[in-house]
């Protein structure tokens, strides 16, 4: 059966057309710009262009590591990403399992809709809401705290509070949206498995533990590996909008630093160098997570 490549293309043309938009998107916005990483090794001048700019090797990488803040910025990014995974990753799974146990269809749908609504709010709006409700002089959170007889807390101007506020607002925003996938995975579990478990005398708790969770395990593992890859990749906008001089200690992350140094200070080479470095770290994370999961079980990305 030596079908030539052209015949294959002819045969699958409908699929190829369907694939095309995604392919073009990736080529145009993910692969072509990769060429731009070259500027991180050059003293990039906008007007001389990429080719004519002077080659400076690793100067900008050195510059980043000579910076006394570099460690702090990397740590902030890493910790914020880590906390987001620790608290943000299990939350949708738990929500999905809980929703799965609900018998009332209407109520279930209502909860689902309400819980994924925040996903559609722009980070700017969320940051605005947070600034308002957490304000020590006018916000209602502090009014409740004061009514209970405690001192008001200046949430947004305490470096210690920044991570808590950021991570919890992320969990609130994404919990419902994240649970959709797990709910879909749960419905694909064969009902016979539950029946068999009931026959063996398993209560609902046992059924969840021995049927539901193993049933969605592949989905959990795949999503976890993907999340690990994004550990260093946090939404710039919310962090930027919630931080201020008093919280830089915990709130200055790679992307806010790149924004300040790269975009507003027009230091494109330096910003590219930092971003490339971060990309490599992200790759290492995904790769190691994948290796580990392949060793432990049989689910992996590749």
């Amino acid at each position: 059966m030596n079908t030539s490549i052209f015949r294959k293309i002819r045969r699958d043309r409908a699929f190829l057309v369907l694939l095309a938009p995604a392919l073009i998107f990736y080529i145009l916005f993910r692969y072509v710009p990769m060429f731009g990483i070259i500027v991180s090794f050059k003293d990039y001048n906008l007007f001389s262009g990429i080719w004519k700019s002077e080659w400076v090797g690793l100067r900008y990488y050195k510059m980043f590591f000579d910076n006394p803040d570099a460690f702090n910025i990397i740590r902030n990014t890493f910790l914020l990403g880590l906390y987001k995974i620790i608290f943000g990753f299990p939350a949708p799974i738990i929500l999905a399992l809980l929703l799965n146990e609900l018998k009332m269809k209407r109520y279930k749908r209502f909860v689902q809709t309400v819980s994924y609504m925040p996903h559609f709010l722009s980070p700017v709006v969320v940051a605005g809401i947070l600034v308002m409700i957490l304000s020590p002089s006018t916000g209602f959170v502090n009014q409740i705290i004061q009514d209970m007889g405690f001192e008001p807390i200046n949430f947004l101007q305490k470096a210690d509070w920044f991570r808590t506020i950021y991570v919890s607002s992320e969990v609130w925003q994404e919990i419902g949206w994240g649970s959709i996938l797990y709910l879909a995975a749960l419905t694909s579990i064969d009902p016979q498995l539950y029946e068999a478990a009931r026959m063996d005398g398993a209560n609902r708790w046992r059924q969840m533990w021995h049927v539901s969770i193993p049933g969605i395990m592949p989905a959990i593992v795949i999503l976890f590996i993907l999340q690990i890859g994004k550990i260093m990749e946090l939404g710039f906008d919310k962090v930027f909008l919630l931080s201020n001089a008093a919280t830089y200690e915990t709130a200055d992350i790679i992307s806010t630093y790149v924004y300040r140094m790269g975009i507003t200070s027009a230091n494109f080479s330096y910003a590219t160098a930092i971003d490339l470095f971060m990309g490599i770290i992200g790759l290492i994370f995904v790769y190691s997570a994948n290796v580990i999961s392949r060793k432990l079980g049989d689910t992996s990305l590749w």
């Binding site: 999503l223 994004k230 975009i263």
Partner: peptide
Amino acid sequence: MNTTMRKRYSSV
């Protein structure tokens, strides 16, 4: 299907 389809503004 990941939750964060948002990309960092800076890089975009």
